[in-house]
Design a binder for these strands. Sequence first.
DNA 1: CCGCCCCTGAAATTGAAATTTCAGGGGCGG
DNA 2: CCGCCCCTGAAATTTCAATTTCAGGGGCGG
Lengths: 293, 293
Amino acid sequence: MMNEKASTAPERPRSLEARIQEHLSELPSSERKLAELILDFPGELSAYTATELAKLAGVSKAAASRLFKRLGFTNFEEARRLVRDIKQWGSPIYLHERQQDSSPLPSEKQAFLDDHVAALTRTFEQLNEADIEAALQRIVEARRIWLVGFRNSYFMAAYARWQFIQFRQQVHLLPHPGETFGEHVTEFGEDDLLIAVGMRRRVPELERVMQAAHERGMPVLYLTDSLAGDKKPVATWTLRCDISSSFLFHSYVGPMGLIHYLSVQAVRLTGKSGRVRLEDIEIAHEKMGDFDD
Amino acid sequence: MMNEKASTAPERPRSLEARIQEHLSELPSSERKLAELILDFPGELSAYTATELAKLAGVSKAAASRLFKRLGFTNFEEARRLVRDIKQWGSPIYLHERQQDSSPLPSEKQAFLDDHVAALTRTFEQLNEADIEAALQRIVEARRIWLVGFRNSYFMAAYARWQFIQFRQQVHLLPHPGETFGEHVTEFGEDDLLIAVGMRRRVPELERVMQAAHERGMPVLYLTDSLAGDKKPVATWTLRCDISSSFLFHSYVGPMGLIHYLSVQAVRLTGKSGRVRLEDIEIAHEKMGDFDD
DNA sequence: CCGCCCCTGAAATTGAAATTTCAGGGGCGG
DNA sequence: CCGCCCCTGAAATTTCAATTTCAGGGGCGG
């Protein structure tokens, strides 16, 4: 076997790319062609079969098989696992390796960045203008705004509330500390607006609140993820965000971008009065010495 | 241009997720379990085999095979291809190219998108690796984690808490509803960690909390914006985010990205125990019928 | 309470991907 | 110019994932 002794094999999981670099100079041409391809590969390597990679590189399947052997794997499957799991779970060791890169942004961080950018882009691309227009109008005109979000959606509702109170009054985040839903639901009125944030995974409670609003003739703006079913609950308008990520946790930059967008546009809609209010708040804070800097 | 509604759209390759949504209600339980898993799947689906997915969902391989058939694929391989190629199609690079063409995105939305992307990029570029490493270690090892954030920083602390409780216990968000700070501050201990989120504009209270932690020999991770002065408060580690935006409100996608990054890396650090906890949570939820879909 | 229908996972079968074998080359030292 | 050695891809073989089959339930209408 061409497997040069374990002498150079520290039993640590080195990344596939590292192993390739290490052996690159001593690889025969067909295997090297494949190795180069892998180093340049833009996509998720582990999503491809050895046969496909071989074809892409224009070499035989045999060459592929031999390459992975030579790189110290027992077979292709082992390499594929490594790539996949490093992406998913990483390992401190692996991360360390990458930091030695002289690239401006270590590729691991780059991968996170790309992930968020992709999610944001998809979110903005698929926004439904018509619903946004209508919802904005209501955000501006509603007598009161009720915001609700459970679990992972709670903080987005909190963010939206913070933004909205910058330009209007009567923005309530539910459930209020120490209060139950019932108290507020009975207050729901026709002139109000419910904004329900419901990213996967939703709890049944959310739909109950939406239903309650609906029954009282109150419009509902539903912010959800793009995977949500079409059996839309009783939403008047639905805005979907892409929260997919290739890492362990979803990315919520999409919804953040959307709420930011809604906020800015809403202020524009309110016109001068909104801006004045912003200034008022600013002034009030300063008078009270609220700020640090 | 033709504005073809989804109804008339012929065989535009529908995404796997879309197909699942469409059939979700009529799926038998074992197949549905698997479908749910796929909808929630954070990683690169196409990097996994049907057998692995089945195992993760706790169903038989047969169920997996049947599911993909029922979704309209001729076999699993076809589904895997679809996922892989759509992902490739939606990659940031590809999207970037696309944007230069016949602007599919109205320039106004494009401007928002660019703004966020810029903020994210600057945030990731300037991250201090050394502080991150140290902070991560502490996030994993601390006995308790206290999260604090006022005003516009509150929702980020809430987000961080939600993420962190996915893989560890004893993560507390301050101030707790209906409680004052004093009660908790006296609990601060050397083995704990305080994570203070303080984006402009800060209130004096934040520094008081940080000071209190400091006096009790407790390390402090300070998440702030890049404009924060250097007269850094008593922070052990400081991580800065770029929140600048050319619009009326700041963009908080930077901090979101950072917290996401910290969460994923922290889980990686905790290793198997963290993963196990993730699984446990999932199971617990299912038992309680917490979820809607 | 029967019996139909569909669901389920274990096990057998199929089939594709990966590995190994093998029969040519081609470079290069002797 | 010979001959060794290693490379190469086609083809045979092996391996293992995916599919199909099948026997055993369980719900529900009759």
